[in-house]
Each structure stands twice: as C-alpha cells, then as structure tokens.
Design a protein around this nucleic acid. Structure first.
Ligand code: MN
Ligand code: MN
Ligand code: ZN
Ligand code: ZN
Lengths: 140, 140
DNA sequence: CTATTAATGCAACTTACTTGCAATTGCAAC
DNA sequence: GTTGCAATTGCAAGTAAGTTGCATTAATAG
C-alpha cells in the first residue's frame, strides 16, 4: 500500500481529513533524506504547486509531531528541523561547509555513559541529543 | 589577581575599554554555574543595578564569544545560551522538569565513534554537541 | 444534498535577535 | 584637567521564526 498511504489511511480512520497539503507534506517527509525546517518544507511545497499559508505549514508540523509521523531535531542554528519518525535510534553528521546532513547509527549509543551519569550524578537520562559537526566527504 | 580581573586587564591591553557593563557581564559569566541566555543575563544585570540596553547585551555577548571568554551552547529551545569558556571538554545534563543544567565530563568522550565515522562515512568530525535530557536528583 | 467540524487563510502579535546612526564615554596624549 | 579619537552605547526600526484569534472554506459522514 505504501507507507505514505497507510499513514494517511490511519489519519482518516481517526477522523482527520486528507487535504492536499497534508498529503503532500507527509509524502515530502517520508521521502526526504535530510531533516527539513518549516521554511524548507514550505518551499518544497511551492515547487510542486501546493501553495499553503505558513500558518498551515506550522500547524501541520505540530499535527504530524503529535501523531509521531515526524520528530523535531535540535540543531545549533535557530531553526527547528523535522524528519520522518525514525525506525532506528540515530544521530546526525552536519557539514559546516555545505550544511548537508547525514544520519548515522551508533551501536550501543551512550549506554555506558548514561549508566555512569545515573550513578554519579543521580540524573535519570530519558534521552540524549548528539550531533557531529565537521566536513563531509565532498567538502574536505 | 582573580580571573575576572586578568581577563579585563587583557582587554584593556588590546585597546578595548572597561565599561561598567563589560565588567559586570564578565563577572557574571565567570561566577555562573549554569549557562545563561541573553535575557537571563540581562535580568542578572538589572538585579545588580547595571541597567543596559538589550542591544548592548547582545553586542557584549558577541564580543566575549570572539574573545573566547564565553562559548555558545546549542540547546533545543529557541534560545542561545552561553557559558564561561570551558577549561575541560564537557557536556550537559538538562532536567526536563525544572530546566536546571549541570555540567558533566566524560572520559575519552566519543573518540571511538569519531574514528568510526571518519572510516565509514568519510566525515571529518571537528566537534560534537551532546546533551542528556532527563530528571535531575530533585525532580525524580 | 446537507450538516458537522476539521482545516485554512489572513492579519496581527510575540520573541529573539540585528542594524544604522547619532550621542556618549573611556582613556591616552598633551 | 583638557582634548581628541574611536570604542561603546542607546534608541528606534527592522528581521525571521513561530503563534494566535477569528471568520471562512471544505472534507466527509449520513
Ligand atoms: Mn536522521
Ligand atoms: Mn558547562
Ligand atoms: Zn559538506
Ligand atoms: Zn530538575
């Protein structure tokens, strides 16, 4: 059936509506390799002639977040970015030269560290955010 | 002589001036345990009756960043935060309940991972940002 | 086709931060 | 202590990202 369509079908069964912008936005997030900001999403929509008000874009992002179709990522710049809700725990490589973003998986990611933090700081970690800044293959 | 004073003396020797706001801001950053946003810094200044325009606060933050007296930290919320330039490589524990921030040092922090990333992704890491979100001792 | 209510557009607002420019002030030289 | 220069400041206006209230539109169930 395709992941996009099954997500959309799920929305409909919950009483949410399948509007042109919703369908386009879900498709964009599911097909995008890199995380997108609200502004970037809006320009992708324009490219495929789906013209929507920015308010709608922000509201749709909130909706998709609440439905766990996308997640918000904390990057250093002032902009929130969003990506398809991940199947796997992973982090990102951000190129400081061309701004490209790659996803990376790390095995047993920070498990030991979180245990140490629990013991030594009595701090119960719920999640962590981790990005690597540097130069991608092209930019070195 | 005190670190604050030696930093201020260094500024003066480079031709920068010792204004009331500069002196107060350096002192605040050097004595603050937690990172501060521009707005938080401004209210600390008000508390000690150093009234400055927000423009000055932002400009002084830029100046202190350029002088490596403070560094900018990437947190998830829309606000940039700053802390005294660290002596040691370290990261932060952010409490999602009370918003408190602690610093933590991790031994050999992500060294293996950065090597693996170099090999497998051909990505040259320059730095990484890492924060743990969870519950502090008080909030559990 | 009609009613219901989810979704949208628009304008105005907020928050964090920036910029141009004229006025002020630290401080070094006299 | 007066003067001069340039670093610093304040103010007003501007950006950019994101939010809110409200009237209007439109998806879909019956
Ligand atoms: Mn990713
Ligand atoms: Mn710290
Ligand atoms: Zn690159
Ligand atoms: Zn706490």
């Amino acid at each position: 059936m395709g992941l996009t369509n099954s997500i959309l079908a799920g929305f409909q069964s919950k009483g949410y509506r399948l509007t042109a912008s919703r369908k386009a936005i879900v498709r964009i997030f599911l097909n995008s390799k890199a995380p997108l900001s609200a502004v970037e999403l809006n320009s992708r929509l324009k490219k495929i002639d789906v013209i929507v008000n920015k308010t709608t874009v922000y509201r749709e992002i909130d909706f998709l977040k609440s439905q766990k179709v996308i997640r918000e990522l904390p990057f250093g710049d002032g902009k929130k970015r969003y990506e398809k809700w991940p199947d796997n725990h992973h982090h990102h490589l951000v190129c400081i030269s061309c701004d490209s973003i790659e996803c990376i998986e790390l095995t047993g990611c920070l498990e030991k560290e979180e245990k140490k933090i629990m013991k030594e700081n009595n701090f119960k970690t719920i999640k962590h955010s981790l990005e690597f800044q540097g130069l991608c293959a092209k930019c070195q």
